[in-house]
Nucleic acid binder design. Structure first.
Ligand SMILES: [Mn+2]
Ligand SMILES: [Mn+2]
Ligand SMILES: [Zn+2]
Ligand SMILES: [Zn+2]
Lengths: 126, 126
DNA sequence: CTATATTTGCAACAATAGTGCAAAAACAAA
DNA sequence: TTTGTTTTTGCACTATTGTTGCAAATATAG
């Protein structure tokens, strides 16, 4: 693995994601950082964090990409089978780390990644 | 519901989607139609078909939007809980209409839509 | 055939993401 | 602390995908 440097951009983005109870989009992060770094840097930092398994990337039900800290992953064992809930009212995207949908595929299929997203109204909005 | 007219663009796009065993992207359709109509028209036809519940829109695991004929839907009862498989080799996106992942959410959540996509290697490529 | 509502094409716009490259910054070794 | 190397950053540009306003064309009901 490539050596990573400790920069303010990375530290701040990681800080934001760590503090947040919900997954964050590039736009969310850019707004919060308020000019701390260039928008391209945010893309690149997020790519690196994803590559290193520090965060995971979620393609939301509406196609918007959001990022969230990996809670249950180790650097060797990645495990992103959990459900994501996207609130249609407050637009929060939440990792439901302990809810893992079950399904059975014919074994001719080899599964590498999953993306499970449901949308609706979250407990805070209902 | 608004009245729909029978145009060549709509007929051809519907034909493509009906014939296809896999879900098609706007780009796929544009290529197949080979100039039959403007690219904006394709977007608009797909929007109308989706609105009318003739096709359903799938946000693939990589964020690319694809469309597929609704097989199990009636105009009043829509039901898109099935799994979608996205092959990393041949890039085919397939509706697995009879595979419906099961999951249990705390009942404080109200679910309106779901999107279940898995990627890997399909039976044809393995 | 005519009147009307829908559909289309075009050109322009908008939003989001990716690239090449030179400058800046981080870090390790001296 | 200084130096040398590699990573990271900002900038300007490009790419991709989808949307909009509007006038012209077309489908359909009567
Ligand atoms: Mn998650
Ligand atoms: Mn489907
Ligand atoms: Zn909410
Ligand atoms: Zn395949």
């Amino acid at each position: 693995m490539k050596h990573r440097r400790n920069t303010t951009a990375t530290a701040e983005i990681l800080n934001l994601l760590s503090q947040s109870k919900t997954a964050l989009s590039h736009a969310n992060i850019q707004q919060s950082l308020d000019g701390l770094c260039n928008r391209v840097t945010i893309y690149r930092v997020l790519d690196r964090l994803t590559e290193d398994g520090v965060v995971h990337k979620i393609v939301n039900i509406d196609g918007v990409v959001v990022y969230a800290i990996c809670h249950t992953c180790t650097s060797k064992e990645h495990h992103h089978n959990h459900l994501h809930f996207s609130c249609e009212k407050c637009h929060a995207v939440t990792c439901l780390d302990n809810i893992e949908p079950s399904f059975k595929l014919p074994k001719k299929y080899k599964v590498n990644h999953v993306n499970f997203t449901v949308s609706g109204i979250c407990p805070l909005c209902c």
